[in-house]
């Protein structure tokens, strides 16, 4: 496969997050691996901000890359932190001599054999997700045209991630709506079942259901569900002790 072919295929894959078996970690690993294949850098890694606001290295092309990213995040020092804070790309073509810029990161990366480091932001307008890190074994390891390619890959991946999150949140809300509505329906139906079976009115039936739930330390919704699925005998609800007795309805 030519570089051009791989590049085209990568962009298609990065845009395609709305697949049934989408897995964010797998997706980010592919982004990191393709950066290594396409950009001539030694290693690549993705650091994203979590729901609690902390940056986390989620995918790295190697373990040595992952360890350095962990140190960057923990010690709050390095190109990916600067990139995340500013929302702009960060370049360091010569890590030798960059100790003043990054007192923790620069010596660590040099000791691991990296001589240059780059980070491009993963953001869509004012929505910042994190950064894509690229480390090279030689100085001047990422030429500017390739930095533009890295940024384009980061952009497409960002849109893909945001799109998938948006759809998933909507699906969750839709499911919560259905679950809450159905729970309401099941509770009312259970009141009707208990009222008819015990020849009381629905208010008294509700009191019996609540009494049973409290006595057995169960959720009211769970008791209602059991009544409707006939896992719970209405006679058990009628008995003040809550003990099952009598014949099934």
């Amino acid at each position: 496969m030519t570089r051009q072919d791989l590049l085209s295929r990568t962009f298609v894959e990065l845009a395609d997050t709305l697949v049934e078996n989408y897995d964010q970690i797998d997706f980010l690993h592919r982004l990191a691996e393709r950066c290594v294949s396409l950009l001539g850098v030694a290693e690549a890694g993705v650091v994203l901000v979590g729901s609690e606001g902390q940056l986390r290295p989620l995918a790295s092309s190697s373990e040595r890359m992952h360890l350095i990213e962990l140190i960057e995040v923990q010690r709050q020092d390095g190109p990916c932190l600067d990139c995340w804070r500013s929302g702009e790309a960060v370049r360091e073509d010569q890590l030798t001599g960059a100790e003043a810029r990054w007192p923790v990161f620069a010596p660590t990366a040099l000791a691991a054999g990296f001589l240059s480091a780059y980070a491009v932001p993963m953001r869509l307008r004012d929505k910042r997700l994190g950064a894509l890190n690229l480390f090279a074994n030689q100085a001047y390891g990422l030429i500017e045209p390739d930095e533009a390619v890295a940024q384009a890959m980061a952009d497409v991946a960002t849109i893909g991630i945001l799109h998938e999150r948006f759809i998933r949140q909507r699906e969750e809300v839709s499911e919560q709506l259905q679950v809450a509505f159905n729970a309401r329906a099941v509770l009312e139906q259970a009141k009707g079942v208990v009222a008819a079976a015990t020849s009381t009115d629905v208010d008294e039936a509700f009191a019996l259901l609540r009494g049973y739930a409290r006595h057995h330390k169960l959720l009211l919704s769970e008791v209602a569900r059991q009544v409707m699925s006939r896992d719970l005998d209405v006679e058990a609800i009628r008995a003040p002790s809550g003990a099952p007795r009598g014949s099934p309805r």
């Binding site: 679950v179 809450a180 509505f181 139906q189 079942v193 009222a195 008819a196």
Partner: peptide, 28 residues
């Protein structure tokens, strides 16, 4: 989660009597 927005709650409340009657008819 577990609760309904007022607009949707209104519909659930309207349905209350239908669900209760359904439960009674199940037994009857």
């Amino acid at each position: 989660p577990g609760s309904l927005h007022e607009v949707i709650e209104t519909l659930a409340t309207e349905r209350t009597v239908v669900y209760q009657a359904t439960g009674m008819i199940m037994v009857q």
